[in-house]
Design a protein around this nucleic acid. Structure first.
Length: 657
DNA sequence: CTAGGGTTAG
């Protein structure tokens, strides 16, 4: 009884197979039929044993059928099939194609190795690869970007003339496209007498992959004008090229082309459309397309979340994430990176912490993208300790991990510590990039490390071979200006090789404010107004400079000019996260549900402040210092550039802002 | 029996 149970459980409950076990089939055809009704690997093994026991079943037809089924069916086993294959005498082209095809479409790491083994064996034993074999082999080469191996196959295809087969040529073009060799793709394409939609699509992709989106679009237009109508697969590639170009007009044309030509709007095309509209800046239309997509997958949600984050619509991105949660769609790594990025930019620490624990709960390793996004989130939310905790626990740290830490430390007023991380990263052999230097230079600026900053700026091009961009010049101007070396800053701006932008002038103006350089400020203000006459920034700073110099008349004059020129002061926006909800406040804004309570509290604070008769400085920074003392609260505030840790009436930034 | 698709950090 027990033995029977064992046999029964080792087979599936398919009674037909059980019968066959006791009464082996006499007919070859019945062996083939029983193959088709297999329900599990165990069934397959039973058939294998029947074939092995009976000599007259061991024909090429049976082996081919058996190996096909075992290698290609989801209930089969590729390695078992390969073992059976090794026992077959003189396998046919067909049989080789079966086993090579199976390895080419498997996710195995060793698939290329196995395929090349079979391919060589085939050539050695005099079996000639055909127009099916070559595409399978090339597919595996493409997966591994095995260019050298692919080139050998290319040679074979040229020598035997099989390159004229359109499938062979297209798979070869695809290999070169994926490896970024668009010249090789173009050459094959041009020299081809016979080309189809896939050939064109591969050419378009070759351009798109090599960062030549204009060329990709040009090829697409040529195709639709001369030869073929595009399908969904072509459109996905063209749309993503359009996303790179950020060309909304083109994007709309492509969308119209799709409706005019009835291109099926499947989930891939829909995702590409959502991505395109977001990257081209049409957020509303992206949401509309997303809403109308009949089928969505996790990538659709990711595209929307990442795209909104990219457009600076952080609050909206988090709202989409909440909707995704409520619809029961499971987030993946890409989702969480997007969410963390939004948290970082909003300072939404609570949600960021939730994501961190979600990652822990789902055994996602906080490494790579996720780890870096966590470090960045904590650093930008002012939690340097947690940031460095995640950083320490990462198995592999790259330039992004270090840069996040350096930028974070600089923002939080720990300039020296930032420079320590910079040296460490150089010691462990990670090459800094342009963004790292923005962090390093702003760390020097904040910590008042003038000599170090100047030195690093020099080394940036001489030692690290990074060409300084506008932001880097800006950092140095900031560094000199804040340190009161205004003359040197001016000289630096005068001699820099690129035309200074408004940020550089703005930074100088800020320094003039801090160091009371009134006349110079007036000159710079004129310059700024020249460059961007309808921006409010320069006017506001200048009027503040006049006010602090007790020149109220001039300050009022500036406000008057602003009114005359119809320049409105853009109200600043403050953001606070409470219990995972982000609240926004603007000057005079009464839209919050608890406006009454909020304003009455504000009145109380301001009354308290007026009572101590110290109204001269009424900046937000000053008021927050006051609040931290009177209400005994530790307050962490982030402005556009850095963090302020207020405690007991003073601030970590040493009033350096 | 064969080839082509979208999202990702500073």
């Amino acid at each position: 009884m027990r033995e029977r149970e064992k046999i029964r459980s080792s087979c599936s409950s398919n009674s037909m197979i059980m019968q066959k076990l006791y009464t082996p089939p006499q007919q070859l055809s019945s062996v083939l039929r029983s193959l088709e009704s297999c329900k599990s690997m165990e069934d397959l093994k039973q058939i294998h044993s029947i074939v092995l026991k009976t000599k007259h079943f061991q024909t090429h037809l049976v082996w081919t059928k058996f190996i096909s089924f075992c290698a290609l069916s989801p209930l089969g086993n590729l390695h078992y099939a390969a073992l059976v294959f090794d026992k077959v005498d003189n396998p046919s082209v067909n049989l080789y194609n079966v086993i090579i095809r199976a390895f080419a479409s498997s996710k195995e790491k060793t698939s290329l190795e196995n395929i090349l083994y079979f391919y060589c064996e085939m050539l050695e034993s005099g079996v000639i690869p055909d127009n099916f074999t070559i595409p399978f082999v090339l597919k595996a080469c493409t997966k591994e970007k095995a260019l050298r191996e692919g080139e050998i196959v290319h040679c074979y295809a040229v020598k035997t003339g099989i390159l004229s087969d359109v499938y062979v040529k297209n798979t070869l073009m695809r290999l070169y496209a994926v490896c970024g060799l668009y010249h090789a793709v173009k050459k094959l394409f041009t020299g081809s007498a016979q080309r189809d939609l896939v050939s064109w699509t591969t050419l378009i992709q070759a351009y798109a992959n090599t960062d030549l989106p204009e060329e990709a679009v040009r090829a697409f237009l040529e195709m639709v004008e001369t030869e073929f109508r595009a399908d969904g697969k072509t459109m996905v590639i063209v749309l993503s090229a359009c996303s790179k170009l950020k060309d909304l007009n083109l994007g709309r044309k492509l969308h119209r082309y799709m409706s005019d030509n009835k291109v099926n709007l499947d989930v891939f095309v829909g995702n590409a459309l959502v991505d395109m509209y977001l990257k081209c800046g049409d957020v509303d239309f992206a949401c509309k397309v997303f809403k109308e997509m009949p089928i969505k997958n996790v990538v659709s949600w990711n595209s929307l979340i990442a795209g909104l984050t990219h457009q600076g619509k952080f609050k909206e991105a988090l709202n989409v994430f909440r909707r995704m949660q409520s619809e029961g769609v499971k987030p993946d790594n890409v989702t969480l990176v997007g969410v963390l990025n939004s948290c970082a930019n909003l300072g939404a620490l609570e949600l960021g912490e939730w994501v961190h624990s979600y990652i822990g709960g789902n055994r996602i390793k906080p490494d790579g993208f996720i780890g870096n996004a966590l470090v960045d989130m904590y650093a930008k939310c002012g939690r340097i300790d947690q940031a460095s905790e995640v950083f320490k626990n990462m198995k592999r740290r790259d330039v992004f991990s270090y840069t996040s830490m350096i930028v974070g430390l600089a923002m939080n007023g720990q300039g020296e510590k930032a420079l320590e991380f910079f040296s460490e990263m150089c010691v462990v052999g990670i090459k800094p990039n342009g963004v790292t230097f923005i962090g390093v230079l702003s760390a020097c600026s904040h910590a008042g490390l003038v000599q170090e900053g100047k030195q690093l700026f020099k080394e940036m091009s001489s030692l690290y071979k990074i060409e300084p961009q506008m932001e880097h010049y800006g950092c140095l101007v900031d560094l000199l200006g804040r340190a009161g070396l205004i003359a040197e800053a001016i000289e630096f701006v005068r001699t820099m090789p690129i035309e200074p932008d408004t940020f550089i002038w703005g930074s100088l103006l800020g320094s003039c404010k801090t160091h009371g350089e009134l006349e110079l400020a007036e000159t710079i203000m004129k310059k700024l107004v020249e460059i961007e006459p309808d921006k409010d920034g320069a006017y506001v700073v200048m009027s503040n400079i006049y006010s602090s110099a007790n020149r109220q008349k001039d300050a009022i004059e500036i406000r008057k000019t602003m009114k005359e020129r119809k320049i409105k002061k853009i109200p600043g926006c403050s953001v606070i996260e409470l219990d995972g909800i982000v609240h926004e406040f603007r000057k005079g804004d009464k839209s919050h549900l608890r406006t009454k309570e909020i304003y009455s509290m504000l009145d109380e604070v301001m009354n308290g402040r007026n009572a101590i008769k110290n109204r001269k400085e009424s900046s937000c920074h000053c008021v927050t210092k006051f609040i931290s003392r009177v209400y005994e609260r530790e307050i962490i505030v982030r402005d556009r550039n850095r963090f302020h840790h207020f405690k007991g009436g003073s601030c970590s930034c040493n009033d350096f802002w």
